[in-house]
């Protein structure tokens, strides 16, 4: 179970050359959240996720952890890399077997008491039994997605960021992914999903946001202040 937390990202700006992608926008993420972000192609959804994950350097960004005063992104980058996990649209599989991919994640979590049994439990949690020795590169899209989520489960991230997690998945794989994400959310992990198909996540989402004109706009919920979404979250959770 993840302890309650809140991370606020403020004044996020990012440009690639003369192309301004994000401008003075903000987002707040708390435990048990499932935030679904939509937006047109090139709106900056993936860039936003990568900034939150600590993978993309923003032009400007301030972060406040819980009630602490805001600090620059650069100062908290290491912390983001440790506590936030970003899953690519097509999850990357390291060379070798499925088991090697999962053990890689397990080795990076020193808090795991019994690594071997944790890996076995995680494999069966994802329904990947029998595929352990199979080359990870030869797995289907849905299986790769499950491997990526299994790696995430072993690392216990506070925030899980997913870029189009159900794109190109059949209905069975999609249902399975949703079930796994639900378990993450229930355990306290905050989930941020970027998608073109928000309807898929309607049962899972606690808030929906729309990225437009370089900024995050509240969607469906009519809240003016996108940073303070607590009331919306609470009502959704209830």
């Amino acid at each position: 179970m993840i302890e309650n937390f809140r991370i606020g990202f403020r004044e996020i700006s990012k440009s690639f050359g003369s192309n301004q992608v994000l401008e003075q926008t903000a987002i707040s993420i708390a435990s048990h959240d499932c935030i679904v972000i939509t937006g047109n192609n090139g709106a900056g959804k993936t860039t936003l996720l990568r900034i939150i994950a600590g993978l993309e350097k923003p032009g400007h960004c301030e972060i406040s952890l819980d009630d602490a005063s805001p600090e620059p992104w650069r100062r908290l980058r290491k912390r983001l890399l440790k506590s936030v996990m970003y899953l690519h649209q097509q999850p990357y599989m390291f060379a070798g077997s499925l088991l090697r991919n999962i053990e890689y994640a397990a080795r990076l979590n020193p808090a795991l008491a019994d690594r071997e049994s944790s890996v076995q439990k995680a494999v069966s949690w994802a329904g990947l039994e029998g595929l352990e020795s199979q080359s990870a590169a030869s797995l289907s899209g849905g299986q790769k997605q499950r491997v990526a989520l299994t790696r995430a489960r072993l690392c216990h991230p506070q925030v899980l960021l997913l870029d189009e997690p159900t794109a190109n998945l059949d209905s069975e794989s999609r249902e399975r992914t949703l079930q796994m994400l639900r378990e993450f959310r229930d355990s306290g992990t905050a989930i941020v999903i970027v998608t073109h198909d928000p309807g898929v996540f309607s049962d899972l989402a606690t808030s929906k946001l729309h990225l437009q004109d370089h900024r995050i706009q509240a969607d469906d919920i009519g809240a003016a202040d996108v940073v303070e979404l607590d009331s919306v979250r609470q009502s959704k959770k209830r």
């Binding site: 600590g54 993978l55 890399l81 996990m85 990357y92 994640a105 990076l108 790696r151």
Partner: peptide, 13 residues
């Protein structure tokens, strides 16, 4: 694939 580096980093390496 640059995702190899990013996946390793985001897993906590």
């Amino acid at each position: 694939d640059r995702a190899a580096w990013e996946t390793a980093r985001t897993l906590g390496a």
